[in-house]
Amino acid sequence: MTTTTPLAEGSALVAKRMQASSGQSFPRHRASAESALVVTAGRCTIRFADRLQELSAGETAVIPAGDWHQVEADTDFSAVHVMPRDIRFTFSA
């Protein structure tokens, strides 16, 4: 199971908690602005079109605007996703 829960909102930024069980994936998407994913527990892999980025608890990835990607849980994991308030997402079919 994957979940995304709002944590905080400011005038320019929002933060959301992302959680997933081992082997689960969030939908493949791209965003209109860059964002940061900070893993707080477990491990995940971000699959970009041209590379993989593996993250463990305490590590951070900056996800570029416009890059198609998908976050997959390698173990049960949680992360905080910080992004601009006006970010827009496009999901693949």
Rank of each mutant, 00 (worst) to 15 (best):
M1V: 08
T4Y: 04
T5K: 11
P6T: 00
L7I: 05
L7E: 01
L7F: 00
A8N: 10
G10Q: 09
G10W: 08
S11D: 15
S11H: 14
A12K: 08
A12N: 06
A12V: 08
V14C: 01
V14P: 00
A15L: 00
A15I: 00
K16C: 01
R17E: 15
R17K: 14
M18K: 03
Q19P: 04
S21F: 08
S22Q: 12
Q24M: 11
S25W: 04
F26E: 06
P27H: 12
P27C: 10
R28C: 09
R30V: 02
R30Y: 03
S32D: 10
A33Y: 11
E34H: 15
S35G: 06
A36K: 04
L37D: 03
V38S: 07
V39E: 07
A41Q: 07
A41D: 09
G42C: 13
R43V: 09
C44D: 05
T45M: 06
F48Y: 15
Q53V: 14
Q53P: 05
E54K: 12
E54T: 15
S56A: 15
T60K: 07
A61P: 06
A61N: 07
I63L: 14
I63Q: 07
P64E: 06
P64W: 04
D67M: 14
H69P: 10
H69R: 14
Q70W: 04
Q70V: 04
E72R: 13
A73R: 03
D74V: 13
T75S: 15
D76E: 13
F77I: 06
S78L: 09
S78T: 14
A79N: 12
A79F: 10
V80M: 03
H81C: 05
H81V: 02
H81G: 01
V82A: 03
P84M: 00
P84E: 00
P84V: 00
P84A: 01
D86R: 10
D86G: 09
I87W: 01
R88P: 00
R88M: 05
R88D: 05
F89N: 10
F89Y: 14
T90E: 15
T90A: 15
F91W: 12
S92K: 06
S92E: 13
S92V: 05
S92N: 11
S92W: 08
A93Y: 02
